[in-house]
Amino acid sequence: MKVQVRNVEDVAIIDCSGDVDLYSSPRLREALLGQIRGGAKSVLVNMGEVGYIDSSGIATLVEGLQLSRTTKTRFGLYSLRSNARSVLELARLHKVFNLFETEQEALEKIGSVQPFGGL
């Protein structure tokens, strides 16, 4: 799995690719929690190249979500493939996360200057 962070204006985007499992999820966790703790106003995870995610990967995303609520950081996921989406749906988490189809949509909604909680 590869994890890379880039910034689009004041939004931190975490590009994630490969399998997110017990072995690799600590790398995603480090990047995700690092961005939120580091004061990013908005954090997006690009899931477009994630072909597999297991319960430890889901746990990492939930941890990020919980921390983002504490720090009032806007947080969302986009470009989920069918496998990842179906796992989130099975865990009934698809309505808990802010999910977007594309990066553009995610940036428009998450990156817009609206009060936290508007999503």
């Binding site: 297991d54 319960s55 430890s56 889901i58 746990a59 990492t60 939930v62 941890e63 979500l65 919980q66 796992v87 099975l90 865990a91 009934r92 988490l93 808990v96």
Partner: peptide, 17 residues
Amino acid sequence: PLDDVRPGGLGTYFMNC
């Protein structure tokens, strides 16, 4: 429980699903 949103506790659920 699925409505108790917190990290972890889903592996066995996926196995049984």
